[in-house]
C-alpha cells in the first residue's frame, strides 16, 4: 500500500526485521518446526519402511475414525456461530456504555479465570441430574423429570460456550466501541433507522473484528478436548478428532498415526479459516454494494 522512498527503504526494512525477529523465531520454533516434524512423522508409519500415506488412508477408510471429523465440525461450527452471535449482540448493545458496565463485564469475564477443569466441575454440579438447576425447575413444577444436560453433546456445548463467550465478547466490545459514534449518528440523520445502521454501516465496519472472532473461536472449538471428555461422551457422540489423536498417541502408542490425525485436524482448521476469510470479503462487499446499486 504505502511505498517507502528508495533512500528510506533499507533503513526501514532493517528496523522492521529487527522488530519482527522475535516473533518470527517464536513461530519457527513453536509452530513451523513441530508442524513439519508432525507431517514427517505422519508419513513414516511404524509398521512400514520409508514414506507412505498409509496412516491417512487408514484414517479415511475407518468409519470409527473419520466420523470424528464430522463430530468435531458438528460441535465447532454451531458453537462458533452461537458464541460469536451472542457476543456480538451483547457487545453491540453495550457499545455506548451501560449502567453498571464494569460489574457486568467482570461477571462475564470471571469464567476465564477459573480454568476449564473447575468450570467443567461447576457445570456438572449445577446442570447435573441432582444439581441446582434441576432442583429448582423440578421444585417449581416446570419440569416433570430431569433433562440430560451433561455427559452428552449439550454438556460440551455448554462448557465451550462458557469458556469462549467472555473472551469473544471482550474482543468484540473493544472493536465495536472503537468505532466513532458520529459515524452511526450521521447515518441516523441521513434517514437510517437502527436496523439499517446496523446492517449497512456498523456490520461492514465490524466485519474484520467479527471475522477474527469467528476464526479464533472456531479454531479453539475444533481442538476441543478436555470439555469433550469431562462433559461429553468421549466414546461416542462427542468423540472429537483431538480425542482420536490422543488415543492413538497415548493408548496405542502409535505416534505416527497420531501425527497423521493431528495433521488432518490442522488442515480442517485451515480450511475453516479460509472459508471465514472468504465470507468476510463477501459480507463487506454485499453491504457496500447494497448501498451502491439496487
Amino acid at each position: 500500500m504505502r511505498r517507502a522512498r528508495v533512500g528510506e527503504r533499507s533503513e526501514l526494512d532493517a528496523m522492521a526485521m529487527v522488530c519482527v525477529l522475535p516473533s518470527l523465531l517464536y513461530v519457527l520454533v513453536m509452530f513451523v518446526y513441530p508442524f513439519l516434524y508432525g507431517i514427517y512423522m505422519s508419513l513414516r508409519p511404524a509398521k512400514l519402511l520409508g514414506f507412505s500415506l498409509a496412516n491417512y488412508i487408514v484414517f479415511f477408510t475407518d468409519e470409527w475414525q473419520y466420523r470424528t471429523v464430522w463430530i468435531t465440525f458438528g460441535i465447532a461450527v454451531p458453537n462458533t456461530i452461537v458464541v460469536v452471535s451472542f457476543a456480538l449482540l451483547l457487545a453491540y448493545g453495550m457499545r455506548r456504555g451501560i449502567w453498571l458496565e464494569r460489574t457486568i463485564t467482570t461477571i462475564l469475564v470471571l469464567p476465564i479465570s477459573l480454568g476449564v477443569i473447575l468450570l467443567a466441575e461447576g457445570i456438572l454440579g449445577f446442570y447435573g441430574a441432582r444439581g441446582w438447576f434441576h432442583q429448582i425447575l423440578l421444585g417449581l413444577g416446570v419440569l416433570k423429570e430431569p433433562l440430560v444436560l451433561t455427559h452428552n453433546y449439550i454438556g460440551v456445548m455448554l462448557s465451550l460456550f462458557m469458556q469462549q463467550f467472555p473472551f469473544c465478547f471482550l474482543m468484540l466490545l473493544g472493536y465495536v466501541s472503537g468505532i466513532d459514534p458520529s459515524i452511526e449518528n450521521s447515518a441516523r440523520t441521513l434517514g437510517a433507522g437502527p436496523w439499517t445502521v446496523f446492517y449497512k454501516v456498523m456490520l461492514p465496519l465490524m466485519a474484520p473484528g467479527i471475522a477474527i472472532a469467528f476464526a479464533l473461536v472456531f479454531v479453539m472449538s475444533f481442538g476441543v478436548f478436555p470439555s469433550a471428555i469431562l462433559l461429553g461422551q468421549p466414546a461416542g457422540a462427542t468423540r472429537t478428532i483431538a480425542i482420536a489423536a490422543y488415543q492413538q498417541a497415548f493408548e496405542f502408542y502409535d505416534m505416527s498415526y497420531a501425527s497423521a490425525i493431528a495433521v488432518v485436524m490442522g488442515l480442517f482448521q485451515l480450511a475453516g479459516l479460509l472459508v471465514i476469510i472468504l465470507l468476510r470479503r463477501r459480507m463487506v462487499m454485499a453491504a457496500t454494494m447494497g448501498v451502491g446499486k439496487r
Binding site: S182, N185, R188, T189, A192, G193, P204, L205
Partner: peptide
C-alpha cells in the same frame, strides 16, 4: 427519532463512512 426529522448534520470530524466511496 433522528431519521424522521429530515435534518442534515455535518460533524466536526466529518464522520464519512470509511467503507464506502464518495459516491456511495
Amino acid at each position: 427519532p433522528p431519521e424522521k426529522r429530515g435534518f442534515g448534520m455535518v460533524f466536526q470530524n466529518y464522520a464519512l463512512f470509511p467503507h464506502m466511496t464518495v459516491y456511495s
